[in-house]
């Protein structure tokens, strides 16, 4: 579904990713784990079209999207739920969710999608008419995920969904990601919370200093000595 071949990418003169290649197949849950600054978020931002790679190729469903603008990538069916939630602070929760359905393919069905999404997030339903900025961090993360789902994406990408959340909320977030995957949506997650994420994934990639150091089935990575020492502290 998504194929990345040897991309270099970064910010201005700083190259962060060096020759990164990875693949996500339809229906999979794939995780990119790695330390802070390894280039995990940069990878997702490059796929989303916020950063244009300086080398390599990205293709989605056979179409070259290496240089496609961010708003066009969304139209093709790739949605990124960004790190730090990035809600529209002075809009209500309902308005935030409707913005999620801005994608052309999602607009017509926005009322149905909203109903489906709210079944997954009962707390969000109670907050529909509140300003997004008045919500707690956990609630904001739920709205951010719900907003991403509103686009009815083929590939949903999560950038550090558990960052800065209380442990109980973190487990709720992973529960929701599991439910999204169960509906057949392809998922690509970037996380520092290595154990929970790999547990919920089919496959994983380990990113170190902008390069893929290791990849394989999630269970195999959980048993790998290097992963256990470097990321699980075992």
């Amino acid at each position: 579904m998504l194929t990345i071949e040897g991309i270099d990418a970064g910010y201005g003169a700083t190259t962060i990713l060096q020759g990164v290649s990875l693949e996500v197949k339809a229906g999979e849950v794939v995780t990119i784990v790695g330390a802070n600054g390894a280039g995990k978020s940069t990878t997702l931002r490059t796929i989303a079209g916020l950063i244009t790679p300086t080398a390599g190729r990205i293709s989605f469903e056979g179409q070259d999207i290496t240089r496609t603008a961010a708003h066009e990538v969304v139209d093709l069916g790739i949605t990124l739920i960004p790190e730090g939630r990035q809600l529209f602070p002075d809009m209500t929760v309902r308005e935030n969710l409707l913005m999620g359905a801005y994608r052309k393919a999602a607009r017509a069905a926005q009322a149905e999608t909203l109903e489906e999404v709210l079944q997954l997030f009962p707390r969000v339903r109670e907050r529909m008419n509140q300003q997004a900025s008045s919500l707690s961090g956990g609630e904001q993360q739920m709205v951010a995920i719900a907003r991403g789902m509103m686009a009815r994406p083929k590939l949903l990408m999560f950038d550090e969904p558990s960052l800065g959340l209380a442990p109980i909320i973190v487990s709720q977030v992973f529960e929701v990601i599991g439910k999204i995957a169960a509906t057949g949506t392809t998922v690509l997650i970037v996380e520092q919370n290595v154990f929970s994420t790999l547990k919920a994934s089919d496959r994983g990639y380990v990113l170190e200093n902008g390069e893929i150091a290791l990849s394989g089935a999630a269970e195999a990575l959980l048993r790998d000595d290097h992963v256990r020492q470097a990321y699980l502290g075992i």
């Binding site: 989303a48 079209g49 916020l50 603008a69 961010a70 708003h71 066009e72 969304v74 139209d75 949605t79 990124l80 960004p82 990035q86 809600l87 529209f88 602070p89 002075d90 809009m91 308005e95 913005m99 999620g100 801005y102 994608r103 052309k104 907003r147 686009a151």
Partner: peptide
């Protein structure tokens, strides 16, 4: 309004 409040997030919604 979305663009005014958060330009990057607006792009991620598919807004030009």
């Amino acid at each position: 309004r979305a663009v005014a409040q958060n330009r990057a997030a607006a792009q991620l919604m598919g807004i030009n």
